Amino acid sequence: MSNPYEGLQDFVAGLPELVQPLMVALAGAIPYVEGEGSATLGIIVGINPIVAAIAGATGNILSVLLVVLLGSRVRESVVARRAAATPVANATTTVATVDEQATTDDKPTRRAKGQTKLRRWLVRFGVPGASLLAPLALPTQLTAAFFVASGVRKGWVMLWQIIAIVLWTGAVAAAAAGLVTVLGW
């Protein structure tokens, strides 16, 4: 079987070795590409599977960290503003979540379906289980934003998102490395 990625592999091989994992890390920061997709692409173009997996996971983790920190600050600001506006409100005032957002059409979007699934997993399995299952429904950046907006502590969100990213990226990268070896690319 001929290699459909030969031209791309030659291009990447011509880049400095330091730039190759940086490209994978940048791709890992993109929602829906994530650590798994970027590591797979890195492996396909000829980057060492371990380097590609670490770079992809690192880019994904850094983007999730940014989302968690920004989302947490936004939530704290909204909660504080609501508490100041209504003297009866207390510190546990909730912020508008996905439940309160209405869609304009009758047909839910792919993102709304993913958020509904994530909400059920969060109730059923808690943050650890929902974090591990969430990549099946939504990108980790959206999952992290959802958790923070729901009031989950940012440290807890980061811990379980990092665990999920490392596990998913490792599993997919191992599968990709095996497939590339079997196909002889």
Rank of each mutant, 00 (worst) to 15 (best):
M1E: 07
S2M: 04
S2R: 10
S2K: 07
N3P: 03
Y5F: 15
E6Y: 07
G7T: 13
G7H: 12
L8P: 04
Q9W: 12
D10T: 12
F11E: 02
F11L: 02
V12K: 06
A13C: 02
G14I: 05
G14F: 04
L15W: 14
L18I: 15
L18S: 15
V19L: 04
P21Y: 07
L22C: 03
L22G: 03
V24Q: 01
A27T: 00
G28Q: 03
G28C: 01
A29Q: 03
A29R: 00
P31L: 01
V33W: 13
G35L: 02
E36Q: 15
G37H: 11
A39T: 07
A39G: 04
T40C: 00
T40Y: 02
L41G: 10
L41A: 05
G42N: 02
I43M: 01
I44F: 04
V45K: 08
G46K: 03
G46R: 02
G46V: 01
I47N: 04
N48H: 10
V51N: 07
A52Y: 11
A52E: 09
A53K: 08
I54M: 15
A55V: 05
A57M: 01
A57H: 01
G59V: 00
N60G: 00
L62M: 13
L62C: 06
L62G: 11
S63G: 04
S63F: 05
V64C: 13
L66K: 09
V68T: 10
L70K: 12
G71K: 06
G71N: 08
S72L: 09
V74H: 12
R75C: 01
E76W: 05
V78N: 06
V79P: 09
V79D: 10
V79M: 13
A80L: 02
R81I: 09
R81H: 13
A83V: 12
A84E: 14
A85G: 04
T86E: 11
T86N: 14
N90H: 09
A91G: 14
T92N: 13
T93N: 12
T93V: 14
A96P: 12
D99K: 14
D99I: 06
E100I: 14
E100Y: 11
Q101A: 04
T104C: 01
D105Q: 12
D105R: 15
D106C: 06
K107N: 12
K107F: 10
P108C: 00
T109P: 02
R111W: 12
A112M: 10
A112Y: 08
K113A: 07
K113M: 08
G114F: 02
G114S: 02
T116D: 08
T116M: 06
K117Q: 11
R119V: 07
R119D: 15
R120E: 12
L122G: 06
V123D: 10
F125V: 09
F125G: 05
S131G: 00
L132P: 05
L133R: 04
L133F: 03
A134V: 11
A134I: 11
A134W: 05
A134N: 13
P135E: 01
A137F: 09
L138T: 15
P139K: 03
